[in-house]
Design a protein around this nucleic acid. Structure first.
Length: 297
DNA sequence: ATCCAGGTTCGGG
DNA sequence: CCCGAACATGGA
């Protein structure tokens, strides 16, 4: 018997817009998007659970696979969806800022209700950054899929297999040869294993990081080999949900600034700061929307 | 063929 | 502090 969880939609929220972002053209192995819902396997304290998220007029609806949910399960599922879709945020002020500036005033209409879609799991977020470093995203998805299919937990529902991102414990003790075979570079292998070990040793933990201020978070993250300023900002934006992140040096951000703000093709740190200045407090959202504006429709 | 891709680290000036 | 090189391979 399926159980439905209903979440009232916040203001300025469009489920289809979020779905379109999730399904923007890359072969993603950690969730499955159809034209009206997204399914994904998540970890709860009690074990794995497949959730399907869709909507009606006024609610976001979460359907779970046919196991009986405890109240803790339900609480964790709701927390996950809130985090993933960034539901707990009033973005009206951001939209007003977008409208107030010539270069961004087309965003509220074109992307109305798009939320900053997150990566809830910190380890997954960090590994994804390392995987995506300096290679094209199509290839990045390809090697991520190999990793997830081989080391991630999975569950078969109605004949379809769904996957979770591998746990740090599994990746921390990997034979490097296996990753070479998946076309990871030696450098990426070192970084991934190193990050996995940092998790195993309790050196990083999402809950702990959330207690720190941003400067301390960045320091803690970049202390780990493989995590540079770009990754620290990306993760801070997509996982720790800091609203003031700018992905300096990001090639996508550069080309979006070139396109939307007529900056140089590779704007300097200072120029980027100037562009973002009027949107203070919403840098992460602006950065996200700027990325979004690069995808065709 | 050539250039670049959701960068990071390391060594050297 | 800033700069170039190495990493490593697919896609356009």
């Amino acid at each position: 018997m399926n159980e439905l969880i209903k979440i009232t939609k916040p203001e300025i929220f469009n489920f289809q817009m979020c779905l379109k972002f999730l399904d923007r053209g890359y072969a993603e192995c950690l969730y499955v998007v159809s034209n009206s819902s997204v399914k994904r396997l998540i970890r709860l304290t009690s074990g794995l659970a497949l959730i399907e998220v869709y909507d009606d007029e006024s609610n976001i609806i979460v359907k779970t696979s046919d196991k009986k949910l405890s109240s803790l399960d339900r609480k964790e599922i709701i927390a996950y969806v809130f985090d993933w879709f960034d539901l707990n945020r009033d973005i009206q002020a951001f939209y007003q800022l977008l409208l107030a500036h010539q270069q961004t005033k087309y965003f509220p209409e074109r992307y109305h209700g798009l939320r900053l879609m997150g990566i809830v799991d910190l380890f997954e977020a960090l590994c994804w950054c390392v995987i995506g470093q300096q290679i094209n995203l199509t290839f990045a998805h390809k090697i991520k899929t190999r990793l997830v299919h081989k080391y991630g937990e999975s569950e078969i529902v109605h004949g379809k297999t769904y996957y979770c991102f591998p746990k740090p414990e599994v990746l921390a003790n990997l034979d490097r040869k296996e990753l070479v075979a998946m076309q990871f570079s030696k450098q990426k292998i070192n970084y991934v294993i190193n990050i996995a070990q940092a998790f195993c040793q309790g050196q990083i933990d999402k809950t702990e990081l959330l207690r720190l201020n941003k400067t301390e978070q960045m320091k803690k993250l970049t202390a780990i080999k493989g995590i540079g300023p770009w990754t620290a900002n990306y993760v801070s934006m997509k996982c720790l949900r800091d609203m003031t992140c700018i992905a300096y040096g990001d090639t996508g951000l550069s080309s979006s600034l070139y396109k939307n703000f007529q900056t140089d093709k590779k704007p300097s740190h200072d120029v980027i700061d100037k562009v973002f200045e009027p949107y203070a407090g919403w840098e992460s959202y602006l950065n996200f929307y700027l990325w979004r504006s690069l995808s065709p429709k």
